[in-house]
Design a protein around this nucleic acid. Structure first.
Length: 1039
RNA sequence: GGGCCCGUGGCUCAGCCUGGUUAGAGCGUGCGCCUGAUAAGCGCAAGGUCCGGGGUUCAAAUCCCCGCGGGCCCA
């Protein structure tokens, strides 16, 4: 049985049960010839998927299903990213911890175990959500970054880096989260608006009375670590004499910027001298807080040059090599001391003198006060600017110089850029522009984190001689389970150095981005579980796809790790998709309250509609989630369902008409050949459209234009199949008995539904499988599952462009006629005598010839004729606006002249709108109108016009009334809940002469055994008003 | 300040790469139709400076340049 109404949830339930019971996934998984190596970008185990994650996996699943149907054996190992700060932060919250000390007190052992369990639990919850989306992946055997074999892949990679001299330990300024007390990679820093002080400070020049160099900063707390002031070598700087309250001061700052700065605090000023920035080089000054930070008293401070100085604020930049990236680099060049008086928590230590014990952000206020008290502050305001935050705990980051471990990306950059070009990027700009830009600006990758829940960095250092040992194989250390390879267990492992000393592991763990960076070999368990020979047959990945946020994330971490490990890119094709936003284009966030959960969408419209919706717009563009759009997709699927059910209704009654034997009987050949022998236009047309769709689907899939396939499919189903084809063939299937045309139509329906279902199966797996099982296999043999079928290839011999174009014209004519009918108030049920199609286009003539019956029946007209020109009267009136100006008082004469023109002259004037009058040629002299004969209505279409004769003669009226009666009777049958095949008796009180000659027609259409004119006395009686005529209809049901 | 993407009726989007009938859908609105797919379905209409300005071209929503607005990323 094929159910009446489309219930997505019921369909899902049935199909899911079918798949499980028959182990369809398992059976499909083992199939296929060539390998398609797909690598799943591992979602982070947060415990819940959101719309974006759902979209991501749906894209992947669709492509995997498509590739499977194309005959590939696909790798479909899902991945899970399970280490790192986000989970640590969650577990800390659950335990009520605030700092690292809480963790250490609690015990790292237990803390890590909690993280482990938490990650696994989340993974399980998310697995269920992905399964609910119909995603077919190997959920039983995922790759997980916390597993021993995966850790081995990471260790192996870092050893490769070490061997090539790409693993470095160095003092560098890094992004530092004072809450998490760890370094962060650039990729972990998120920019958001922050309010900060904006202060102008005077640094006293050594040995010159009342003379200062002026700097601007938004981080007063970095002033205690100031070591230099940088000026641009080519800018012009001025020495200004500024007066405030009668006191004179001398200030150095960029000449052109002075006014804005000095006006903040001084009554007047004048330029005394100018210098080039390079002339200021070496100028010494006193540290502005040398009283508060005594350690600064003994250090030398001077002006240096730097190209990065921007022409804004004062043009003089305060340099603290311990707290700034560029400052640090400059410091290396200029030999400045790297001074960092801030500890892990962001608190000043003893080196900061007076500020010891203050958190840096609290210290801002105090420092500003101090500067003010010392008269060194020109102004203190606040500004809102973009500032980096820890992407997980949202704490503003600080820059700190610390010893960290780095991968020397700077040495690999050229190779990486080269590799980017060898990869196929979809869309192209994802790689060519966006990713290249990111990589060209990349710095060395800081991979060390001072945390607990991560892959331990496998570096052991001798306490005595400082020698390194990098372990690239987990079997070099004792282990039994995953946790043995984590902190704190791994920290207990020591090695004996050649020098006799003890080697201990550094305490750091990896940046979590490094984990996923090794995914393309980690997913295969390389090198622990797969031999080189086998491995290189598979690797690199044929395909990956992720959102554009992964440009700096997974696309990057993978490329870096892979160039280190193998000297080449780990993927061949990368499809970059967008972000999900709300309907207004805003990010979905809890605080905005605009989050849409995948679950609630599925609950309302079902999985297939959800999938088709997210796949229906260009993947690389952001997706504004719209409820009305997703509901609309459901509506279209419902149309598809109804179309299938239409076919089912009649075909199941005529099951014996479509057996192979019967087909052979009627067509003299098998099903496939019979399809090619179908001769009627309607069937041939839909078969042609079907193959065109198939051709398009195959072409677009090659370029991963999934949205074009979805759109073309829905368009085909709704427009071609349901709205047009089924309307055309409906009367055919009402015919009882063996009928060649009916059977041909059944065969066509079978083929259309079969191919449609296969084409859309990767996108809408549940509905496709359901229709495959309950419809197709009801009438023809098939595979166990639609997913064991091959993706259909177009049979272009069915494609008939001329027929398609003719049908387009026929449909346009129908639409124009409908419109004309509406103007003339002639509803479709009323038959009309004739339609004239006015067109000189040969195609129109041929189309009408070919599809005359289609047009006649759809338009409900008795005849349709093509004419070059429909007989109509041309009326030209003077265009007074134009001729008035030219002819002045002779306008009246001109109007008379127009009246007397012959038909031919009128036609010529109408054509070119130019009139010769009184020896003058006047352009735009007339307004042309056409008067069409009484009783006609017209409407335009793309290749001409239709003229519909809307007058009803008596004969047509009788037919019209007959149809009106039929419709009423049918409606009453329905109200009586009669079955389609039941018979009735009809008594009707209605002027008999109005339907004379149509009595048999009425009886036939309504399955009436008798039709009596008279007052109905029995049965179901109802009174109607038909176009002003009263009709009382009585229906008796016959047993 | 730099890189990339986006800007098409009230709303959500196709079309742009590869220039070429009158710029298409769907939703919403209004008016109708159909009733043997029917607690469905269909048609028609109104609604567009294709963000603005230049340029290339016989021809620009489409290609190029300059702006404006939005988003992401970087400094």
């Amino acid at each position: 049985m094929f159910p009446n109404a489309y219930s997505p949830h019921e369909v899902e339930r049935v199909v899911r049960e079918f798949w499980e019971k028959n182990k369809i996934y398992e059976k499909v998984k083992g199939r296929g010839e060539g390998l398609f190596f797909f690598v799943d970008g591992p979602p982070y185990t947060t415990g819940r998927i959101h719309l974006g994650t759902a979209w991501n996996k749906v894209i992947k699943d669709t492509i995997l299903r498509f590739k499977r149907m194309q005959g590939y054996r696909v790798t479909d190992t899902p991945g899970w990213d399970m280490h790192g700060l986000p989970i640590e932060v969650k577990v800390e919250q659950m335990l009520g911890f605030k700092t690292k000390r809480d963790i250490e007190r609690y015990g790292i052992d237990e803390f890590v175990r909690k993280c482990y369990e938490y990650a696994l639990k989340n993974k399980d919850a998310m697995t269920e959500q992905f399964k609910a989306l119909g995603v077919w992946m190997d959920w039983e055997n995922p790759y997980m970054t916390i597993k021993a074999e995966y850790i081995n892949s990471a260790w192996w990679t870092i050893k490769r880096a070490y061997e090539q001299g790409l693993l470095e330990r160095k003092l560098r300024v890094v992004n530092w989260c004072p809450r998490c007390e760890t370094a962060l990679a650039d990729a972990e820093v998120e920019y958001a608006d922050k309010e900060d002080p904006s202060i102008y400070v005077k640094f006293p020049i050594k040995g010159r009375e009342n003379t200062y160099i002026v700097i601007w900063t938004t981080t007063p707390w970095t002033l205690p670590a100031n070591m230099a002031v940088a000026v641009h070598p080519d800018f012009e700087y001025g020495l200004f004499e500024a007066v405030k309250d009668g006191r004179k001061e001398y200030l150095i700052l960029a000449k052109d910027l002075a006014e804005n700065v000095l006006s903040k605090a001084y009554d007047s000023w004048k330029l005394v001298e100018t210098y080039k920035g390079k002339e200021l080089y070496g100028l010494e000054y006193e540290h502005p807080l040398s009283d508060e930070v005594p350690i600064q008293r003994d250090k030398k401070h001077r002006v240096v040059n730097a190209d990065f100085v921007a022409h804004e604020n004062t043009g003089c930049v305060h340099i603290a090599p311990g707290h700034g990236l560029e400052d640090f680099e400059l410091g290396l060049k200029e030999g400045l001391e790297v001074f960092n008086p801030v500890d892990d928590r962001g608190v000043f230590d003893g080196k900061a003198g007076k500020y010891e014990g203050l958190h840096v952000f609290e210290a801002n206020k105090v420092i500003i006060e101090d500067l003010k008290a010392k008269g060194l502050l020109i102004s203190a305001e606040t500004i809102v600017h973009r500032y980096g935050h820890c992407w997980r705990c949202k704490t503003p980051i600080i820059y700190r110089a610390t010893e960290q471990w780095f991968l020397a990306i700077s040495k690999l950059k050229d190779k990486m850029l080269e590799e980017i070009e060898r990869v196929r990027w979809i869309p192209e700009w994802a790689g060519e522009a966006r990713f290249k830009d990111w990589v060209s600006n990349a710095k060395d990758w800081c991979i060390s984190r001072q945390r607990y829940w991560g892959i331990p960095i496998p570096v052991w250092i001798c306490e005595k001689c400082g020698k390194w040992k990098v372990v690239g194989d987990i079997n070099e250390v004792p282990w039994r389970d995953d946790l043995d390879l984590h902190r704190p267990k791994i920290d207990e492992v020591t090695f004996k150095c050649d020098c006799g000393g003890v080697m201990r592991r550094i305490k750091d763990v990896f940046d979590v981005w490094f984990d996923s960076g090794v995914a393309s070999w980690g997913t295969l368990g390389y090198p622990l579980k797969i031999k080189d020979e086998e491995f290189f047959k598979i690797w690199p990945a044929d395909f990956i796809t992720e959102g554009h946020d992964q440009t700096r994330g997974w696309f990057y971490s993978q490329l870096g790790a892979s160039v280190i490990s193998f000297g080449k890119a780990p993927y061949k094709t990368v499809l970059m998709h967008g972000f999900t936003l709300d309907e207004q284009g805003r990010k979905m966030s809890k605080s905005l309250g605009n989050v849409v959960e995948p679950d609630e969408v599925i609950k309302e419209v079902g999985v297939d509609a959800f999938r088709l919706y997210v796949l229906s717009s260009a993947l690389w563009e952001d997706l504004r989630f719209s409820w009305s759009e997703v509901r609309n997709v459901l509506r279209m699927l419902n149309i598809f369902w109804n179309a299938v059910r239409f076919a089912y209704t009649y075909m199941s009654l005529d099951k014996d008409m479509i057996t192979e034997e019967k087909i052979r009987d009627v067509f003299g050949c098998d099903f496939e050949s019979a399809l090619k022998r179908i001769e009627d236009y309607e069937n041939r047309w839909i078969l042609s459209r079907l193959e065109s769709l198939n051709r398009l689907a195959c072409k677009e899939m090659e370029n991963y234009n999934l949205h074009r396939v979805v759109r073309a499919f829905l368009d085909f189903v709704v427009e071609d199949f349901s709205r047009w084809f089924i309307q055309l063939v409906r009367p055919r299937v009402w015919v009882e008995g063996e009928d060649r045309l009916k059977i041909a139509t059944y065969l066509t329906l079978l083929r259309v539904i079969e191919k449609s279902v296969k084409i859309i199966a990767p996108f809408a797996p549940f509905l496709s499988e359901f229709v495959y099982q309950r419809f197709l296999k009801e009438f023809r043999d098939g595979k166990e599952s639609v997913f064991m079928e091959s993706y259909p290839k177009p049979d272009e011999s069915f494609i008939d462009e001329e027929l398609e174009s003719a049908m387009r014209i026929a449909r346009e004519i129908f639409e124009a006629v409908s419109s004309a009918r509406q103007k003339g108030r002639r509803k479709l049920r009323w038959p009309l005598r004739v339609v004239y199609v006015e067109s000189r286009d040969e195609k129109v003539r041929r189309a009408v010839e070919m599809l005359k019956d289609v047009i006649k029946s759809q338009c409900n007209v008795k005849d349709v004729k093509v004419v070059d020109e429909f007989e109509k009267r041309i009326v030209v009136k003077p265009n007074y606006k134009v001729v008035g100006r030219i002819l002045k008082d002779r306008v009246r004469e001109f109007a008379e002249f127009l009246k007397d023109l012959s038909e031919d002259e009128l036609r010529e004037i109408a054509e070119n709108k130019t009139v010769e009058f009184d020896g003058k040629r006047i352009e735009d002299a007339v307004i042309v109108e056409y008067e069409i004969p009484e009783g006609y209505e017209f409407e335009e279409f793309s290749k001409g016009r239709v003229y519909v004769y809307t007058v009803l003669d008596e004969e047509l009226k009788r037919e019209a009334f007959a149809r009106e009666l039929v419709r009423r009777i049918q409606e009453m049958r329905k109200e009586m809940n009669l079955n389609v095949e039941e018979f009735i008796n009809v008594t009707v009180e209605f002027p008999k002469e109005l339907v004379e000659g149509w009595e048999d027609y009425i009886k036939r259409e309504t399955r009436a055994k008798s039709l009596i004119f008279g007052k109905p006395e029995r049965g179901f009686v109802k009174e109607w008003n038909i176009e002003g005529v009263k009709a009382v209809i009585g229906i008796e049901r016959l047993k």
